[in-house]
Amino acid sequence: MTTRLLINGRARDVDVEPHRTLLEVLRDTLGIFDAKEGCNEGVCGACTVLLDGRPVSSCLVLAVATRGKPITTVRGLERDGDLHPLQDAFLRHGAVQCGFCTPGMLLTAYAFVEAHPHPDRAAIREALEGNLCRCTGYTKIVDAVEDYARNRCG
């Protein structure tokens, strides 16, 4: 079934079988590897993308069901090829180790700060609760999000 996917502001008409998840179509059909597969059951958050601006597990969404709705992957955060300030904060704070959780972490954090511009550390931790990271222990990720949120509002 030909389905129009809106990925990072670009329309892609893709032939999608109804039983394909968005994660499969991004990775296997479109070669967009921004979202990672860590569990395929909605727990780990490695496959997070924004659908209509809200974080979702792309492993638990049928691709056909996203037709016409804006999808943002981590590359959609960049502006004119420059790193988004949140990406930059992750770098400066050393919030990236193996990086497998990073795209999902960035998108969840981004959507959260858009909706909650002045979060404290506890709120940041709560917001990121569904994104597992096995490497960093989270401290530097929370540092990065906190720093980004603070600078974003000046």
Partner: peptide, 13 residues
Amino acid sequence: ARDKVQAATAYAG
């Protein structure tokens, strides 16, 4: 890390 925040790293998968 710079590559990873942009999802530019080609992991095994």
